[in-house]
């Protein structure tokens, strides 16, 4: 097998100094290959958000090594990490984080704007991405006019429009009801299966984690278990 997409070795993350210092991550070793669908679980305070921020190159480890596609992220500066996010990563969040009062189409075009794509190509790619998440024809609606599930689909379209190597999902179904959650998870599963998209998802809901092929459990900043499963739920309604 080739080098893994993500390779963490003995990653630590400290916040604060002296007596107030807090160790969010206490030596995490994790390797994720291309095409995997990984769920990161753990109680609050277990360090899963810190891990997610490091994986997303929004933060750098205090110690240890994080290699993304063989590139040592800890040695990159702020702008280099921004470029890495721009070209290789896609994010979806619990709170959707769409630009308010901005149409779905423009939200999806935003990453392409920073990549310097010409306007016509931005429009085309964004329309395709919206169609791929089942929102064909919804492009002119602003987030306020869309349901939570639709907003998350727009966010997924925005994350995927640049064809990233890795999709990071931070509690993607946290703000959605069960029905909507299932639809979103089915969409992620389908993207993983059909396009080989690598997905790393943080969740504290066990039934959402079951959609993944691999469940990593964090406790007190350490990996407590790392289990490969076969998805127990079929991806009905993914088309």
């Amino acid at each position: 097998m080739s080098a893994p997409l993500i390779a963490l070795s003995n990653v630590t993350r400290c916040f604060g100094h002296g007596a107030a210092a807090f160790q969010a991550l206490r030596g995490v070793d994790l390797s994720i290959g291309a095409g995997e669908f990984v769920a990161i679980m753990g109680p609050s305070g277990s360090g899963k958000s810190s891990l997610m921020n490091i994986l997303g190159c929004l933060d750098t480890p205090s110690g240890g090594s994080y290699r993304f596609q063989g590139l040592e992220v800890a040695q990159l500066d702020r702008d280099q990490r921004a470029l890495l996010r721009r070209h290789a990563l896609g994010f979806i969040f619990q709170g959707f984080n769409l630009l308010a009062r901005t149409s779905a189409q423009e939200n999806v075009e935003l990453p392409l704007l920073y990549r310097g794509e010409p306007a016509s190509r931005r429009r085309l790619l964004a329309r395709e991405a919206l169609a791929a998440v089942g929102l064909e024809g919804w492009g002119h609606h602003t987030p306020a006019e869309l349901s939570g599930g639709q907003q998350q689909r727009v966010a997924i379209a925005r994350a995927l429009v640049t064809e990233p190597s890795l999709l990071l999902a931070d509690e993607p179904t946290g703000n959605l009801d069960t029905e909507r959650s299932r639809e979103i998870m089915a969409l992620l599963v389908a993207l993983n299966r059909d396009k080989g998209l690598t997905v790393v998802m943080v969740t504290h809901e066990a039934d959402m984690a079951e959609y993944a092929h691999r469940i990593v459990r964090l406790v007190d900043g350490r990996i407590a278990s790392d289990i490969r499963t076969t998805p127990s739920v079929c991806s009905e309604g993914a088309h």
Binding site: D79, A82, L83, R86, L89, L98, L99, L110, Y114
Partner: peptide, 11 residues
Amino acid sequence: GIRLAIGAREG
């Protein structure tokens, strides 16, 4: 924050 997360540089 959103702009930075999707890869906007400081400049």
